[in-house]
Amino acid sequence: MSSNQVSVFVLTYNQENFIAQAIESILMQKTNFTYQLVIGEDCSTDTTREICEIYAQQFPDKIKILPALDTNIGLIANYMRTLKECDGKYIAICDGDDYWLDEYKLQKQVDFLESNPDFSIIYTRVRKLYPNGEFKESTVIPQKTSSTFDDLIFDNYIPSVTALFKNIQDNCSEIPDWILNYPYGDWPTYLWTIKNGGKVYFLDEITAVYRMEIGVSSKIRKKVSTIDEINSRITREILKDSSFKSRKEIVKQALIKQKIRLMVRYNRERNYVEAFKLYFCNLKYFFHIYSVSKMYLYSLYKSYR
Rank of each mutant, 00 (worst) to 15 (best):
V10F: 08
I19M: 06
S25C: 05
L27H: 14
T31D: 13
N32C: 10
T34Y: 04
S44V: 10
T45I: 15
R49H: 11
C52I: 09
Y55S: 12
F59I: 01
K64N: 07
I65Y: 02
L66I: 12
G74I: 07
L75S: 11
A77W: 06
Y79A: 08
L83W: 07
E85L: 01
I91L: 00
I93S: 03
D98E: 15
K108L: 05
S115N: 13
S115Y: 00
I121K: 01
I121A: 03
I122H: 00
Y123R: 03
R125F: 01
R125L: 08
R127L: 14
G133A: 04
I141G: 06
K144T: 13
L152T: 00
V161M: 05
V161Q: 07
A163R: 01
F165D: 02
N171I: 00
I175R: 04
L180S: 12
N181I: 01
I194G: 04
I194Q: 05
Y201A: 07
D204L: 01
D204F: 02
G215H: 04
S218H: 08
V224H: 06
D228G: 09
N231Q: 14
R233P: 00
R236E: 11
I238D: 04
K252T: 15
L278I: 15
N282T: 11
L283M: 15
L283T: 12
F286D: 03
S291M: 12
V292H: 03
S293E: 07
